[in-house]
Design a protein around this nucleic acid. Structure first.
Lengths: 335, 335
DNA sequence: TGCATTTATGTTATCGTTAACAAATCTTGT
DNA sequence: ACAAGATTTGTTAACGATAACATAAATGCA
């Protein structure tokens, strides 16, 4: 197989200098209209494909934006990435996507790997990282954006919300319905830092209402959320049979719990009101529909992309974006 | 902000040549143990980060493997990508992931964009592409692997299965239960080529059993599967009230349909037996559990990665991998 | 010890593109 | 028609690494 053609080949064939070919491939450059046309045609004829790697090396711009998320298979992270990718690729950037599988060491390894490609910005999910990862990020000389959480000690910029504060919305709602024996399911897995933050928010909100918050059941790692939700519901009913409301760390756990109620003939919301988190599709389809919190994943992605673009124009720009999640009431809390 | 250090800086600081530094960063190269140690230490001290772009340009190897999938937020595609990424990154490759949103023009644009980075292999989902995309792929001089479908006219290599053939499994099962008025939901969206293939398979299987296959209802684009499944169930019940079995293009559509049955008090499986496709988590959690087909997404990813690695060693290697999906029986068909 | 062999390090040119500067060509107004 | 400015094209060197080849240092063995 023969070597693929370079600008040099195109230049020779078209009878111009290499530099003119280079310019012809940039939209804004000054090249005569008929010269450009000839070059385009010659390039097509030769099957020339522009080599971004060489361009990057010379111009010292990688066009990469590195992005890490905990899991690919999550409607919310996916929505954020879709929004982010759309906006960034429209602006000519290439997203380098990595998933950590909720493992902070994996995240560190990914960051290390991505930095070797000289990304122009790094967008990470969450504010919890290994010490080494924090160091890598802050010393990278590249804009860093933490999304989804509003960490107490940000590395660079933040586009997120307070997971803890969202629990106020849910607890207030359940309390306003007269529920008092409110349980929380999930938030026990070390790896799911957002879940832990939500549980902490639940505890704080309950304390604010002077309600006992001892009804806590684990649901394990987020990867098995639905199954674990069903299992955990069994535990909850045995341990705290007088529970009259349940907040789940996610809609997926919530759906597992809901289906277990269905199996056992427990009436939701009459006996137990139930709320999830994440506004997953399933919350609007399951029976009963699940009250949930919409964390605005697309808005997070769009804002993060906007911030990246702004920072690439002006690295000194300040800009943290706070997102305001909304409570979506549905049948599972009797609305 | 000062320029980040290069090998030259490390070499000067460590009192060796640039080439020695370069070798010290490759594991297998011959460098004295104490020299290597000194270089490592100097590099760390300077905060040196290896520049993969430059290395790629010189060595004419990108370490990239381009991968396109229809949607990020899909448990099956995600599982394939996870398996693929894990295996390839262990071997030192970087996956460039792009999602097409089930749009073939978007896929073409992605491929065009990826080729400019000189990937060492390209893995695409499905066997349906624009003509231009097919041309790009086949002329790229890079190994091409089509996954998830077994296309009639492959571009290069294939790791997949016959969507149509999987429907034989499901139809045979339902017929063996004595069901005759079998409906199919989905497969109507142009963009969902796999769904279309499944519907075609359904029609073929019904013909083989000499059964009428006019009970077809659309469920629209896969992005809204759950909602559309619920809506479509309404249509089905109105149009074909004597339906005694339903095959859905995916478990997500199936769950939508199932929840609509629950709302209307229709007994599944007594009145209507129901089967989905994809072995999504939800199929094992919903009530009743959903009979489904497991398309072995992880196996697809692993096999595709294995094939990529093999092809990179020996580009002339032949190798198509056929995956055999399995039927998973559950309560929704009365098992 | 001395010479062949292995191991460790150095030198030079280059991957394919673009920044920076230089030169040539084309406009335009008088 | 011609100077002055605007537009288009060309030349040279460089981005940061490595392949290929050359040489120096270390080792083995008679």
């Amino acid at each position: 197989m023969k070597r693929s053609p370079t600008m040099k080949d195109v230049a020779r064939e078209a009878g111009v200098s290499v530099m003119t070919v280079s310019r012809a491939f940039k939209d804004d450059a000054s090249v005569g209209e008929k010269t450009r046309e000839k070059i385009r045609k010659t390039a097509d004829g030769l099957g020339y494909v522009f080599d971004v790697t060489a361009a990057n090396l010379r111009s010292q711009r990688s066009d990469f934006v590195a992005v890490t998320i905990p899991s690919l298979n999550n409607a919310n992270f996916a929505a954020t990435v879709v929004a982010l990718t759309t906006k960034l690729s429209d602006a000519g950037y290439q997203v380098l996507l990595g998933h950590t599988n909720y493992d902070m060491d994996k995240e560190e390894a990914l960051i290390r790997q991505f930095l070797r490609r000289r990304p122009e910005a790094i967008v990470v999910t969450g504010g919890h990282h290994t010490d080494a990862a924090r160091k890598l990020l802050s010393e990278s000389g590249v804009p860093v954006i933490e999304t989804w959480d509003a960490p107490p000690d940000p590395i660079g910029h933040v586009v997120g919300f307070s997971n803890a504060a969202t629990m106020d919305l849910v607890v207030d709602h359940l309390v306003s319905l007269g529920r008092k024996n409110i349980a929380f399911m999930g938030g026990d897995a070390d790896s799911d830092t957002r879940g832990r933050d939500r549980r902490a928010g639940f505890l704080a909100a309950m304390a604010r209402h002077r309600l006992q918050a001892r009804r806590l059941v684990g649901s394990g790692a987020p990867q098995k959320a639905m199954h674990e939700g069903a299992r955990a519901m069994g535990h909850l009913l045995e341990a705290y049979p007088d529970t009259d409301a349940l907040i789940c760390v996610s809609d997926l756990v919530g759906f597992g719990a809901l289906s277990e109620c269905q199996r056992r003939g427990i009436d939701v919301p009459a006996q137990i009101a139930m709320a999830g988190f994440g506004a997953y599709d399933i919350s609007e389809v399951c029976v009963p529909n699940l009250t949930t919190v919409d964390p605005m994943p697309t808005k997070i992605g769009e804002s993060a992309a906007g911030l990246v673009l702004q920072l690439l124009k002006d690295p000194t720009a300040k800009g943290n974006v706070m997102i305001t999640p909304t409570l979506r009431l549905a049948q599972s809390t009797g609305v």
